[in-house]
Design a protein around this nucleic acid. Structure first.
Ligand code: MN
Ligand code: MN
Ligand code: ZN
Ligand code: ZN
Lengths: 137, 137
DNA sequence: TTCTTTATTGAGAATGAGTCTCATAAGAGT
DNA sequence: ACTCTTATGAGACTCATTCTCAATAAAGAA
């Protein structure tokens, strides 16, 4: 569980300022849990009376993503979604085409295989996108 | 190699009309080879003096994609790219973060593993997106 | 071939997620 | 408290993609 102090340290170590807006966006996304877009975060904050502008939500989410606090997820509907990265391990996503549900999965062997393939081509793996679009059986 | 007659059959079997514009978009994408966005297809057609509107390129590409003639590829820059699906087998993509190059790869075991994981969760795999973002070693 | 029906097209307007501008506010170091 | 610089808010703006609608042309019938 990342504390606000840790958020402060991470931001400041990169030359970013530790502002109340950034705290609010970060804490809100953590509290919400799951995968959410900027508009949802903005609405949630607004409904609580806190004043964080839409632009700041977008900017903050971007800062957090660049610093590994948050993960960006694009499922193909043109809306970027984000999830707070606590201490949890890496995982990929299954998206149910019936319900829109996002199920997380992790497979050791799958991760290894990707590395192997990339190496075979003379490259280094920086990141990957792996999404399985499924239907209920 | 898909012939124009095959294009006609596929379109008409789905109730779509076999129009010169659709032939031009399809043949142009095939001729170009590789992964291209709608603007590139539009420009290419325009440079050859053929008159196909931008809207029609977008609409046609969508029709072709829905009918398995074309594959959509989103690499995260907000521009959808497409590639003609001839008779070639399935493949996924490595995107070089240095050059923007798109390298195709296929791994039997990887494909099998995905199926296994999805089944384990009680779902059926409909499609998947697997992109490896890499850097030159 | 001509007629009818209905999908398609072109041109440009509209959409909308995300970005940018700029004047004002406020972190952080001294 | 002062200074320097980054962050914020409000709204304008971007730009890929979609939509509108009048005009056009496939496809099937006769
Ligand atoms: Mn997740
Ligand atoms: Mn390809
Ligand atoms: Zn993974
Ligand atoms: Zn694959």
């Amino acid at each position: 569980m990342k504390t606000n102090t840790q958020l402060k340290q991470i931001l400041q170590s990169e030359g970013f300022r530790y502002t109340p807006q950034r705290q609010m966006v970060w804490n809100e996304l953590r509290k919400m849990g799951g995968h959410h877009d900027c508009e949802e975060i903005y609405d949630e904050l607004k409904s609580k009376g806190t004043r964080v502008s839409r632009a700041t939500v977008y900017r903050t989410i971007d800062v957090l993503a660049r610093n590994g606090m948050v993960r960006k997820l694009e499922v193909g509907d043109g809306i970027a979604r984000y999830e707070a990265k606590e201490d949890e391990d890496h995982h990929d996503h299954m998206i149910c085409l019936d319900t829109g549900d996002i199920i997380e999965f992790y497979d050791e062997e799958l991760e290894r295989l990707q590395e192997k393939i990339v190496e075979k081509h003379g490259y280094t793996l920086v990141k990957h996108v792996h999404q399985l679009f499924v239907k209920k059986k």
